[in-house]
């Protein structure tokens, strides 16, 4: 019932703005008969003009509210990422100390085991078990270190940059590994791009991460396309496309979340893309992904071109 009522009010809201214009058109005919053709035509034209303008305004309003919804979603996404990032670095920090103590105790246990249990039938088993604990502690420590790296606030330092050259450097590095897997890299650089003012190492990190992911998604036999292009006066885009496995529609919303990974356990921490996301936002741009499962994915970075050297972005 409530839903129906809602639909009805929606429809009324939709029709209502057109009413004055339409009414004026309707009364044009009686006006024609009552007051002559000039006023009649005038009323008709007025009515049509009114309806048309009203229609245009409504279309524009709908466009704007769509845009707003999209921006709201983006804002929520980046706030969510920031919150998760903060939370996880907090946890990493807290876990680091107990982890270090466990590590030290493991060494101590090993010392005692070697002294007390040598020759005993359980020595080998104990030794193996202690080694395994040490290994797992080390693994945890690696994860917490990565997390702390991830959350470290590194303010961007802005300086002039030849984007194509910066990308090409990273492509060449990746090419050493892709060549062995029969993955071709196609360059499609926009020649004569003006200098981009950005943070070099941060951008390098993003490009390298994306190229690395593309390589992983293809596994072997495929193509990575790297493209740069200008977007209007004050932005440029970097597109990295792979012919890999693609991302399912269910996963595509989650790819920038920290800890989200489709790699087998121990292979990836799921921090790469979320790091890219936070870096690009720090650089005043945005990053998005388009993908058709089975056909590959494209990551699109948009960066602003209107910053000056040394300027603070945030």
């Amino acid at each position: 019932m409530a839903e129906n009522a809602n639909k009805l009010t929606d429809r009324i809201h939709y029709i209502l703005p057109y009413l004055p214009g339409v009414l004026t058109i309707v009364i044009a005919l009686p006006v024609w008969f009552a007051a002559g053709p000039i006023l009649g035509i005038l009323a008709g034209v007025l009515g049509m003009g009114c309806t048309l303008t009203c229609h245009r305004i409504l279309v524009r309003v709908r466009e704007i509210s769509d845009q707003k919804a999209c921006l709201d979603a983006q804002l929520i996404q980046s706030q969510k990422l920031a919150a998760i990032g903060e939370l996880s670095s907090g946890i990493a920090h807290e876990i680091n100390n107990p982890l270090a103590i466990i590590g030290q105790e493991v060494q101590w246990i090993r010392h005692i085991v070697d002294k007390a249990a040598i020759g005993s039938e359980h020595h080998a088993e104990l030794d193996e078990s202690v080694t395994e604990i040490g290994k797992q502690v080390k693994r945890c420590a690696e994860i917490t270190h990565k997390l702390l790296d991830f959350a470290r606030k590194r303010d961007p330092l802005i300086q002039g940059c030849d984007v194509n050259r910066l990308i090409e450097d990273m492509v060449r590095l990746v090419e050493r590994e892709t060549a062995q897997k029969n993955i071709a890299i196609v360059r499609n650089y926009h020649e004569g791009l003006p200098e981009l003012y950005t943070d070099h190492p941060l951008l390098r990190q993003v490009i390298l991460n994306l190229l690395n992911n593309a390589t992983y998604a293809i596994d072997k036999d495929g193509t990575i396309t790297v493209k740069t292009l200008r977007k209007g006066q004050d932005a440029l885009e970097i597109l990295i496309t792979d012919t890999g496995c693609g991302i399912t529609s269910e996963n595509i919303r989650k790819v920038f979340n920290p800890f989200f990974t489709t790699k087998p356990p121990g292979k990836g921490t799921g921090l790469g893309l979320s790091l890219c996301h936070s870096i690009i936002h720090k650089l005043g741009g945005d990053i998005r992904v388009e993908s058709e499962p089975g056909k590959g994915a494209t990551f699109i970075i948009r960066l602003p071109m209107n910053y000056a050297e040394g300027e603070n972005l945030i």
């Binding site: 790296d149 590194r154 450097d169 990273m170 060449r172 590095l173 990746v174 050493r176 590994e177 070099h200 190492p201 390098r204 990190q205 390298l208 991460n209 190229l211 690395n212 390589t215």
Partner: peptide, 20 residues
């Protein structure tokens, strides 16, 4: 003997550039 992995590590640890 550059590798992607070590490149990422270098940048993450605060290197300015990673050159082959």
């Amino acid at each position: 003997h550059g590798s992607v992995e070590s490149g990422i590590q270098g940048m993450q640890m605060g290197a300015f550039d990673y050159v082959l």
